[in-house]
């Protein structure tokens, strides 16, 4: 019951925060100099053309009316048309989002699994060579500059060795082949995913490893572990069945927060690998003054972060009975 009260309170908060972000975002875009029409350097665009476009895009109206439409559009779930693509924003995001989700959930979960596993080993061998190697290794991969790593990956594995496609998500040979079924197509996507996935994995797993290691070390000092030891249970059982599940809790938090980071890093990873996802689209729309698209993508990101924070907290409360709200 407490959990319900807590959840609903948080939900209300989220709505308020979201509204604030919504407004700040609107103001930011309107305060900025330049508009989508002024970006066009085209010598064929006459001032009259530009004026007409401004009027038709509704940008000539007072700011508060625009704000009203903005809110109305938002509440009705209709985000308007992208200035650049001339298509409904919802459609564009709908196109891009699955790609982002696919790449990032896979990479985060993969790195979390490996991080948990290796973190467990590191903590078990605390102070030994294994631990040092793992920790230093994790630190090194975790702090490598992401876009640079991505470029090196492309250079080595895609260009020099030619094992993987250079960029993109699918290859036209497979997708244009009428005989290709679901399986070859999935394999094709996976093949393209390897490099971005590995890059993201390398960057991420280190942090999970470190969290897991620390958390595990703390858990091992808990009373119930001592009790289990006293009972004479085998170390392996204690480690895998008693300590690890609880120690992995902070990793869950981190996974949730990583969703936020994934969008952040998404801009870089997707740009370098030309992954047709939401991060790349955001960078693009922002630099093209495509307000509706940029606003919607940003709001989406904020929403994902807010909700994932909430989910993490609830999950945490559910999983760890020590925490009560």
């Amino acid at each position: 019951m407490e959990l319900w009260i807590y959840t609903s309170r948080r939900l209300v908060q989220i709505v308020i925060i979201f509204f604030v972000i919504l407004t700040v975002l609107f103001l930011l875009f309107r305060l900025a100099p330049g508009d989508p029409v002024s970006r066009m350097v085209d010598p064929n665009l006459t001032p009259e053309d530009a004026q007409l476009l401004i009027e038709e895009l509704g940008l000539d109206q007072p700011v508060w009316i625009q704000y009203f439409y903005y809110l109305k559009n938002f509440l009705t779930g209709h985000f308007g048309f992208s200035f650049h693509y001339g298509r409904p924003v919802v459609q564009i995001i709908g196109d891009r989002l699955p790609n982002t989700i696919l790449l990032f959930t896979t990479s985060i979960i993969l790195s979390a699994l490996v991080g948990i596993f290796l973190g467990k080993i590191a903590s078990w061998h605390k102070g030994e060579k294994t631990d040092t190697c793992l920790t230093v290794g994790a630190l090194v991969t975790h702090t490598v500059f992401l876009p640079w790593l991505a470029l090196i990956m492309i250079w080595v594995f895609a260009y020099k060795l030619g094992w993987f496609p250079i960029t993109g998500m699918i290859s036209e040979e497979v997708w244009l082949d009428p005989d290709a079924g679901l399986w070859p197509k999935s394999v094709d996507i996976l093949h393209h995913m390897v490099l971005p996935l590995t890059t993201l994995f390398l960057i991420h797993f280190g942090s999970y490893l470190l969290i897991m290691r620390t958390s595990m070390l703390e858990t091992l000092r808990e009373d119930y572990i001592l009790t289990a030891r006293a009972k004479g249970l085998p170390e392996k059982v204690i480690r895998n069945h008693h300590a690890a599940p609880n120690a992995a809790l902070p990793v869950v938090t981190s996974v949730g927060l990583s969703l936020a980071f994934s969008i952040n890093g998404g801009a870089l990873t997707e740009t370098v690998f030309t992954w047709p996802g939401i991060g790349r689209e955001l960078v693009f729309s922002v630099s093209h003054n495509d307000y509706p698209l940029a606003q919607a993508s940003f709001l989406l990101i904020a929403a994902v972060v807010l909700v994932s924070n909430l989910v993490v907290d609830i999950l945490y409360a559910y999983l760890d009975p020590r925490i009560r709200y």
Partner: peptide, 24 residues
């Protein structure tokens, strides 16, 4: 703390990108 929450959900890099693109 609510202010902190709001800022925390804003991905810093993306916001900075936006500011850089918008304000030159």
């Amino acid at each position: 703390m609510r202010l902190a929450d709001i800022i925390m959900v804003m991905p810093a890099l993306v916001v900075l990108l936006m500011l850089a693109a918008l304000f030159g």
